[in-house]
Amino acid sequence: DESNKPILLPNESQSFERSVQLLDQIPSYDTHKIAVLYVGEGQSNSELAILSNEHGSYRYTEFLTGLGRLIELKDCQPDKVYLGGLDVCGEDGQFTYCWHDDIMQAVFHIATLMPTKDVDKHRCDKKRHLGNDFVSIVYNDSGEDFKLGTIKGQFNFVHVIVTPLDYECNLVSLQCRKDMEGLVDTSVAKIVSDRNLPFVARQMALHANMASQVHHSRSNPTDIYPSKWIARLRHIKRLRQRICEEAAYSNPSLPLVHPPSHSKAPAQTPAEPTPGYEVGQRKRLISSVEDFTE
């Protein structure tokens, strides 16, 4: 099969070098950035008060330690540790928490760990991170309901609301924008112990962030949302095809390698009803078989 044979790379090609550099910018793992907010007593309706908090309760602090690993920003190499735009020179604080497994990295933009500057009256330095995160974990210690939209931002799609209760338990629920209701189930609340709260809140936030990324990708319907490693695979396959075309153009005697095509017509299947918005969006999480067989 010609399409699977190794090909020689061009010795000097600026377009090839640019493509390789672009490939280096696509990590081999999925990345997520999640905002974390603490809401104190009497702050449920005040964005400024929430963003001005420099610490929270003892249970909130224990919750943070379970979310991930504490890292010092100045020691991080952005090409190895995903920071979601946090500055490593102290502009966004000294520490944050991050978490990773074999296929993804997540960083938490924690408002109480970011510096509260006197010259920044409206807390814009914090909002440029927190307001651009799709998902926020809100530790609501106010005793009042927290409403979506209290923290203004164009991309605040989903809130994971943590409400501490007695007996070391917590109520965990989801809020989302109306255009996200087909992807996020907000109907079920959970009672979770303090011990298990970081794991549950983190998983709910990661799932909500993946759904938000799919939702946000609708602005470019021709580019369905893939995982990062599938995006790398697609980029490599496009690069291979372009090299083959350039080689055939410079030397017409060489065969032009095309991806294999299936001449056999697909079997006719009964027509199915058109899937609704929710089903269609969830299918976009699934990769096409052509990603692996071309």
Rank of each mutant, 00 (worst) to 15 (best):
K228R: 08
D125M: 14
V172R: 00
A231I: 06
N251P: 06
G42W: 15
T186R: 06
Q105N: 06
S288R: 11
H235T: 13
E12G: 08
L183I: 11
L83G: 15
A201Y: 00
R234P: 15
L165N: 02
E2C: 10
Q14N: 07
Y58L: 07
L165W: 03
K80Y: 10
T150Y: 03
R232I: 03
L130P: 03
T96G: 12
G56F: 01
H235Y: 12
L285T: 13
S253C: 08
G276A: 11
L233P: 14
K127A: 12
A205I: 00
C169M: 04
A201R: 00
K190S: 15
D125G: 15
I191Y: 07
E12S: 06
I286M: 14
L51Y: 07
S52T: 07
V162N: 01
V214M: 10
V39Q: 01
L8W: 09
H100R: 13
S212V: 15
Q154N: 12
Q241M: 07
H122A: 13
T31D: 03
L130V: 12
Q94P: 10
P275M: 12
E91M: 10
N11M: 11
V88T: 14
I161E: 03
T269H: 10
L23P: 07
E290Q: 05
S13T: 09
N209H: 07
R59W: 00
R18T: 12
D30V: 05
N220W: 04
P221H: 06
G84I: 02
Q268S: 08
T61E: 07
L148V: 15
T61D: 07
H215E: 11
I243H: 11
I26G: 05
Q25K: 11
A247W: 08
K228V: 07
D102C: 08
A111N: 03
P221E: 10
V188Y: 06
G84L: 04
H235P: 05
D179W: 04
F63M: 06
Q281L: 10
Q21D: 10
I137E: 00
Q14G: 08
P115E: 04
L256I: 11
L64D: 01
R218T: 14
D1F: 14
N11L: 10
S142R: 00
Q43F: 01
C176V: 12
L23W: 07
A35K: 03
E2P: 05
P115Y: 03
E272G: 13
K152I: 05
Y249M: 14
G56L: 01
W99N: 03
D179Q: 13
C169W: 15
K126P: 05
L67G: 00
Q213I: 11
C76Y: 13
C244T: 13
G40L: 00
N196D: 02
K283D: 13
V257H: 14
C124Q: 15
F199E: 03
Y29E: 09
N196T: 05
L239S: 08
A189T: 14
P10N: 15
V289H: 13
V162Y: 01
S253P: 07
S217D: 05
Q213P: 01
D141F: 00
G143S: 04
E278Y: 08
Q77M: 12
Y38N: 00
V257Q: 15
N251H: 11
G153R: 04
V192L: 02
A49S: 06
V138R: 00
C98N: 10
K80V: 05
R240D: 14
V158Q: 01
I286S: 15
Q94E: 10
R128W: 08
P10G: 10
C176E: 01
P275R: 10
P252H: 07
V184T: 04
V138M: 01
L197C: 14
G93T: 11
V279Q: 13
G84P: 13
Q203H: 06
G66P: 00
